[in-house]
Design a protein around this nucleic acid. Structure first.
Lengths: 231, 231
DNA sequence: GTTTACCGGTGATATATATCAATTATTAGG
DNA sequence: CCTAATAATTGATATATATCACCGGTAAAC
């Protein structure tokens, strides 16, 4: 029995983007009239890298991975997409193409909003424009930090950081289901899946985390942070 | 005899940012009244990572390097700053701090523009806001691509790419002065300076480039592009 | 129900890259 | 012009990380 609760009005949507608060009632109505929803099963592609950015995406429920399809079919996972956040690659304002692919990890209820409409609203509503700038800038800071991390930290540091990301940002809990496979964890931390396995075990042996194939529990957060920072 | 030609009006400035065309005369006057210029010698720091983003920066003349001061005093060079481009880290819209340091490579004539004024203009002028969004987005696409490159390409590929960057973007010429030291080239490609030396020599031995310590000449561009793309 | 494919896991080995130590340019300062 | 400091270069070595080959388990596909 898969009963889906479609949302029929942006004004009462609880998974909405903070920045929508900067719109007038009239503007929000325009958004509401130019969006549509769809359900995706785990593994299905929601947005495909290189395709036209006709829509911005929001998740009403569920989780997705955003990743760049790089060289020789190797993927690079950028982040976990969550409800409440704008999902719109920077390509939207550059070449009108999606910069990355978004694929559902769990079942996802997605809300697509016409990008031309958003663009129009950016032009006429200064506060909304500033909100978008803040959103994009914040992601940009994150990516720069990530770039340095990937370059300067060793494997343990990178993995520790990612485990903390899941704890702090994705699940807001010290114990969580590891929704990514070892392979995918490697695509996120730039390491081979075998190394992910080995280092997870190392961390477990030293009592910093508990880990079985599907679950992670942070036992010594201090230590994990230290490992993540030391690199 | 260091005679400096200060620019006394944004309207006639030829190194200006494209996006200033979207401003009205009145708005441009406001910009002009809220800026100041200064000269920096090679090596001097123009903007310091972590300091408040009270100003956006433009170079009237000269070149600078933008870099993040990462772990254990290791730097990560993001790009070469050039005239005509907005230099403003994404932190401006996040924590009001400069995300990276900017240091002069050559003598630099710098133009600082009050960021609060720019921010105001973004709020009232939609086309200007969109211009800024395009600028930031374009840098963001570049950084994402770079992140994948750094992760997935091997040293030769990364270095080849950087040599092409200098040729295509910085000097627009197949022959140029290498303004970065081997150490700095390493900070840009994430490799040890010794490796930079060895790989430059490799590329020279295989006839792809000519290289002495200060000059680079691309002899076989096709091949260099292939090396850069193959990784 | 059998087969296929993928995932987690392990050990052995190969490779890319960093580090170390030392030698020679090259540049900047007095 | 000489000296000190900095950068380029080289070879030898250490280390981090990837790759390969394999196993058993589980889940999806036929």
């Amino acid at each position: 029995m898969s009963v889906v609760n479609f949302i029929n009005n942006c004004e009462i949507c609880t998974h909405g983007w903070k920045n929508f608060h900067n719109l007038t009632k009239e503007e929000l109505r325009l958004v509401n009239e130019n969006r549509y929803e769809a359900i995706f099963k785990p593994g299905e592609i929601i947005l495909k890298q290189g395709s036209p950015t006709s829509n911005a995406l929001f998740l009403s429920t569920g989780m997705a991975k955003t990743y760049i399809e790089g060289l020789n079919g190797r993927n690079f996972i950028i982040s976990i997409a969550l409800p409440g956040r704008l999902i719109l690659g920077p390509g939207a304002y550059v070449d009108s193409r999606h910069t990355y692919t978004v694929a559902a990890i769990t079942t996802v209820q997605a809300c697509f909003i016409n990008f031309e409409i958003l663009k129009q609203l950016v032009r006429v509503n200064g506060a909304f424009a500033e909100g978008l700038l803040k959103d994009i800038s914040s992601k940009s800071v994150g990516n720069l930090t990530r770039m340095v991390t990937l370059s300067q930290k060793k494997m343990v540091g990178r993995l520790a950081e990612t485990l903390l990301y899941f704890s702090d940002v994705v699940f807001k809990n010290d114990e969580y289901e590891m929704i990514l496979s070892r392979q995918e964890l490697g695509e996120m931390t730039n390491m081979a899946k075998e190394c992910v396995v080995r280092i997870l075990k190392e961390l477990e042996n030293s009592g910093v985390i508990y880990s079985d194939s599907s679950k992670i529990k942070i036992l010594d957060r201090e230590k994990l942070i230290e490992i993540s920072e030391k690199g």
